[in-house]
Amino acid sequence: MNPITGNHIIFIEETGSTNEALKLEEQFHQLPEGTVLYTHYQNKGKGQLDAKWESEPAQNLLLSVLYAPKFLKIEAQMYLNLAVALACRHFLAELLPEQTLRIKWPNDLVVNGHKIGGILIENSLAGSQLKTSIVGIGINVNQLKFQYNQAISLAQITGKNYELSVLRKRLYELLDQYYTALQLKKFDWLKNQYENHLLQKGETAVFIINGQKKKAEIMGIGHQGKLFLMIDGEIFSFLNKELVYCSLKSGNE
């Protein structure tokens, strides 16, 4: 596949959220697949619907990419999530060779008990046809202070200062690589890779399910993206709204 990610780039100094800004651009302009919109400062960064993404100006990677994975059936769309999470994990693992980079289900990037990045994907569907996907990525790079003490940046770990434009370029290459795997429908490979890097896979973790604290073993993910947990010898599957995942740290780390 020819590279597509970052062939067309839009820069906005400051925006509410890069996903929203890219959606708006897409309404008024014909944008090629792979268009990237990035910003220096996101004043209403979107976490999961209402959670906020905390970011200081021009310190971090804050971008959204437009994809049109029309080849992907709706029931297979979770593989887009896996591909993006794996690309971001790969990107961070290259920069942090001495650390273990994990994906916390469903798609947070964690290192040593701290969150270093997050992903938020918004698709538009007509009936059962996927039209466009807006892939929002936030990665903490040079920021040295966070109010939220579970957050961490590359600079905090390595003591280095990073050139954001160089990092962006590499991230685009990796997104292309994993997007190609998606186009080639290497679903089992993506799922295996994802589970290999899944935080606390095979370990017992603490969750809040229906308001109750429960210990459960993380078994893996299903084809619909649900998390499989073993609770008292029985396997259950959960959507991410159906549980609260308490821990950020693996028992072995």
């Binding site: 999961q48 619907l49 709706i74 769309q77 979770m78 887009l80 999530n81 289900w105 469903p106 798609n107 992903i119 938020l120 994907i121 918004e122 698709n123 538009s124 569907l125 007509a126 009936g127 039209k131 619909q224 993206g225 649900k226 959507l239 991410n240 709204k241």
Partner: peptide, 11 residues
């Protein structure tokens, strides 16, 4: 409809 933090706008 959201699954795995993929937010799907249903048209």
């Amino acid at each position: 409809v959201e699954a795995m933090k993929l937010f799907n706008e249903i048209e």
